[in-house]
Design a protein around this nucleic acid. Structure first.
Lengths: 198, 198, 198, 198
DNA sequence: TATGAATGAGACTTCATTCAT
DNA sequence: AATGAATGAAGTCTCATTCAT
C-alpha cells in the first residue's frame, strides 16, 4: 500500500479506471495505456502501483469480493423458514451480480485466461458450494430433505444454476426480471430438494 | 473447400491439429505456428485453408457441433416416461461434453473473446432452451407441471444447471462420476418441475 | 514462344488478363493469382509462360508499343506544313494514350519500381526526343526556327509537356477534350518554336 | 506532437532518417526497420510517432512542402516584366526540385501507390495550375496574350512541361544545366503564350 | 501442359514492461 | 511519485515461386 495519501489516491484512481476499462473492453482487449488514460495518469505511473495487468485485475477482484460480501450481509431472522432463506440468498446474489454485471462477466472471461483468477473464481464457487452442502446435510439430518439427494452433486448443480443464469442474463442482456428470476429460481431450487414452497 | 483429395486431407489435418493445440493451450495461447507444426505443414500452408485463428476455430466448432448432433441421436422409445427422457438427455449431454472436454472448455473461453464464437455458443444454448420450453409447456398443458412455473425462466435455469455442471466438472477435473451426475441432475430437474421420479 | 497452338492461346489469355488486372489494380497491387484467375488458368500455369510479374509486364509493354506504333502510322502527306505535322502527331499520341489509358498510367508507375520497365520507358521517351531534336535542327537549318532554341532542351521539354498532359488527363480523369487538347498543345508547341500557326 | 523536447528530437530524427532512406531505396523498398536503424532508434520506437510507412511519408511531404514554400519566397520586384517573372519562377522551381531531387522523385513514385500521397501531389499541381491560369487570364485581359489560348489547357500543359522536365532530369541524372534549363524553358513558355522575350 | 497445393522468407504491428528525467 | 519515451519479443499474414501429380 502506498505510504502517502496522494499515492493511495492514485492507486484507487487506477483501480476505478480498471473497473471501467475491463468492463468496457474485456480482459484481453484492455490495455495498460487505456487504464492509465482513464485514470488521468501517465502510462508509466501504472507500474508504480501494479506489476502487471494480471495483478491489477486480481486487486480489482478482491475489492469486488469485499463489496459483494458486504452487500450479502442481509439480516437473516432466525425465524425464517428454509424457502425464505433460499429466496433471500438468491435475490441478494442476483442483485449483486446485476449491479456489477460489467465486471462479473469479465471475471468469467479472465478466469479462462489466468490461473490465479481462475483460482479465485473457484474458491468463491467452492465456498458457496460448501455452504449449501452444509445446509443440505443439516436438512437431511432433520428429515427435511430426502437422503436420495447427494449433497455435493446437488450443491454444485444448484449454485451453478444460479450463477449461470445470472451470467447469461447479464452477458446478453436477456429480458429477465430480477424479482421474478429470484422467485422462479428459488422455486426450482426448493422443489428440487423437496422443500415446501408457498 | 479444397478441389483435390490431397487438399482435403491437408485441411483436415489442420483441423485435427487445431483441436489438439486449442485443447492443450487454450484459445489465446494457441499459435498458428503450433497448429501448422502439429499438422506437419509449413507455416504458410495454414493460410491456404484458413484466413485466421478465429476462422479455423469456427470451422472446428462447426465440426464439433456436427459430432455432438450425431451422438445425440439416441433412440427415444415412445413408451418412455418423462423422467426417463430427462435422464437420457442429460446422460447423452454429459457424455458428449466429457468426451470433448478439452475443446468444450476452450469453446467457453473463445466465446468470451470472439463475437462470432459467442454467437454460435448462444445459438446452441438457445436451441436447447427452446426445446425445453416446449417440453415444459406441453407438460403444463397436460397438467403434469404446475402453472406456477415460468417455462422460459425454468428452461434457462435448468439447461444452465446442466451445462454449468459439465463445465465445472471438466474444467477442474472435479471428482464426479458420469452416471451418478446424470442421475442426480435428472432427479433435481424432475423434482424442480414436479415430475415423478423413481 | 509456346510450340503448340493451345500454348499460344494460354499465353495470350494471360497477357490479356494481365492488361486488365494491371490497369485495375496497379502494378504493385496486382497479384499473380488474380491474373491467372482472370485468364481462367490455374495459379501454377502462369509460370509455364512467364518467369515473374516483371516479365509479364515487360511482355505486355512490348505488345503495347507494337500497338502504339501501328496506330501511329498515319499517312503524312509530303505537302503538310510544320503545324499540320505537329497537330497530327499530337492527336495520334493523345488518342493512343487515351485508348490505353489504364495501362499507360500503370506503365508510369511500374517505371518507378522496376529498372527494366524504366529502361523501356526511357527508350521510348528518348526515341521521341531524338525525332523532335532532328526536326528542330532541320527547321533551324532552314531558318524556320530561331537558333536561340537549344534543340535538346526544347525537344525534352515539349515531348514532356505532351506526355505529362496525357498522364494527368488520364490519371485523374480530368475534364479535357481530346480535339481541343491536341489543338491547344500544338498551338503552344508551334508558338514555342516560332512556327506559324493558322 | 511529442510532449517533451526529447520526444520532438526523436520524431525529427525519424523524419530525417526517412528522408534519407526513401531517397536511397524508393518508397516500396524502404523498410520501417531501416528508417528506425538510420535514426538510431529501436524498431518499436517508430510506432511511438507514426502509425505506418504511409503516415511518415505524408509527414515528410508536408515538411518538404513547407521547405519548398519558404525557398519560393523570392522578392518579386513590381517592376519585373512578364518574362522576368516566368524566368524567376522556373529557376526557383528547378532549383528546389534539384536540391530535393532524391525525395521529389520518390514522391512521384509514392503518388502512384498511395491515394493520400497522390492527393497531396495533385493539390500541389492544382495550386500551381490555378496560379498560372490567373496569370494568363490577366494577360489576356490586358491584351498581352492571344484569346486563342485556353488558359486552363495552357496552364496545365506548361506547368506539366516544367515539372516533367525536372523529373526526367533528376530521375536519370541527365546532362542538363540548371541555368540553361531555366532559360530555355522560360523561353519556350513565353513564346508559347506570345510574351516578348529578350 | 495444366493443376492446385506447399513453401518460407520477409515485413508489419502491438503493447507490456523498463528506464531516464 | 510522476512522466512519457524507449525497447524488443512475439506473432500475424502475404504472396511470389516451386513442386508433385
Amino acid at each position: 500500500m502506498p505510504a502517502t495519501a496522494r499515492g493511495r489516491r492514485s492507486r484507487q484512481a487506477l483501480l476505478d479506471a480498471a473497473r471501467i476499462v475491463f468492463a468496457r473492453d474485456g480482459f484481453t482487449a484492455a490495455r495498460i495505456t487505456d487504464i492509465a488514460d482513464q485514470a488521468g495518469a501517465a502510462h508509466g505511473s501504472f507500474y508504480t502501483y501494479f506489476k502487471s495487468k494480471d495483478e491489477i485485475f486480481l486487486a480489482l477482484i478482491e475489492e469486488l469480493e469485499e463489496d459483494l460480501r458486504v452487500s450479502g450481509r442481509g439480516e437473516s431472522a432466525a425465524s425464517d423458514d428454509a424457502y425464505a432463506r433460499i429466496l433471500r440468498a438468491n435475490t441478494e446474489y442476483l442483485t449483486a451480480y446485476y449491479d456489477n454485471r460489467g465486471i462479473m462477466v469479465v471475471w468469467e472471461q479472465a478466469a479462462t485466461l489466468n490461473p490465479e483468477v481462475a483460482e479465485l473464481r473457484s474458491q468463491a464457487s467452492d465456498r458457496a458450494v460448501a455452504r449449501v452442502v452444509r445446509a443440505i446435510e443439516r436438512m437431511q439430518a432433520a428429515g427435511e430433505v430426502s437422503p436420495a439427494i447427494d449433497a455435493r452433486y446437488a450443491a454444485t448443480a444448484l449454485t451453478g444454476m444460479i450463477s449461470n443464469f445470472a451470467y447469461r442474463w447479464c452477458l446478453r442482456d436477456e429480458d429477465f426480471e430480477l424479482d421474478r428470476a429470484a422467485q422462479q429460481l428459488s422455486l426450482l431450487w426448493a422443489n428440487a430438494l423437496g422443500i415446501p414452497t408457498p
